[in-house]
Amino acid sequence: MSDTLAIALRLLAVFVVFLVFPLVIGQTEHKVMAHMQGRLGPMYAGGFHGWAQLVADGVKFAQKEDIVPAGADRRIFQLAPAVALLPYLLVLVAIPIGPHNAVGQALDAGIFFVLAVMGVGVLGSLMAGWASANKFSLLGGLRTAAQLLAYELPMLLAAASVAMAAGTLSLPGILDAFHWWWVPWQIVGGVVFFTAGLAELQRPPFDMPVADSEIIFGAYTEYTGLRFALFLLAEYAGIVVLCALTSVLFLGGWHGPFGADGLGWLWTLLKTVVLAFGVIWLRVTYPRLREDQLQKLAWTVLIPLALAQIALTGIVKVVIS
């Protein structure tokens, strides 16, 4: 009985995080982006500096008519937003936020599970692109597919490097094995992982598949109302997952600097928030990469770097053991 209750509580906590954090990051993006562009951003909704802007947006999306195009593959079209969003919820379950088993569900092959399920999220865009019966959607879907192929590889390789260093696939296991000098040791892998993750989320500057000024939001062209909102939510949930995962794998998760581990989950939170700020910052600063530049960056820069990181990890591992 108490086991069931404990599991229910953990899942509830994960679900609350899943509902709240993407909105917090979305609001932060509104404000940070505005101030980086010399604007103020939302100022009215909710009274104080537009804190309820995303709530208002949600209400607006819920009121809109849910349209399915006549030529669309109806079931797939309607299913796609869920496929895009739910994997991130599943990934959140497996991410440890603090010491002493503070995780939704500890998995032995956690890193494997997390990366596999994150890859599924992109399938949502693919399904939407194919099922919409719209040329822009199809173009966006194909670009998504190309981007997934190109960036999944460096992401996996970079994560594999950490798994090699720790000698385990379990995320809490990796954190238990963590030492401060892992950060400089795995820094290249960390940068590759984070960049590839950004590309997989289709965040600017890697937003060629959704490029609103060229192919009208790509795979999401035909979506309206709540389903469109779910796609947007998936993007922000993806940011939460990517930042949390990067901080767990490469920045030591709940380990503080200089042995100050006392704060526990606050360290994870802090690192995640700083990384999320970085995601927003990159979005504001850089223009969109062209499709060929996107592919070139993945195949000629990120993959060699990830391979070099694996070699370095292997050498150091052999030397110190």
Binding site: V32, A34, H35, M36, Q37, G38, R39, L40, M43, W281, L282, V284, T285, Y286
Partner: peptide
């Protein structure tokens, strides 16, 4: 050049925004 771009946006964020309310 990439770093310069990041510096520009960060500097803008610390300045007062120009929006007329």
């Amino acid at each position: 050049g990439l770093a310069k771009g990041l510096a520009v946006t960060l500097r803008t964020m610390t300045r007062r925004s120009v929006t007329a309310q």
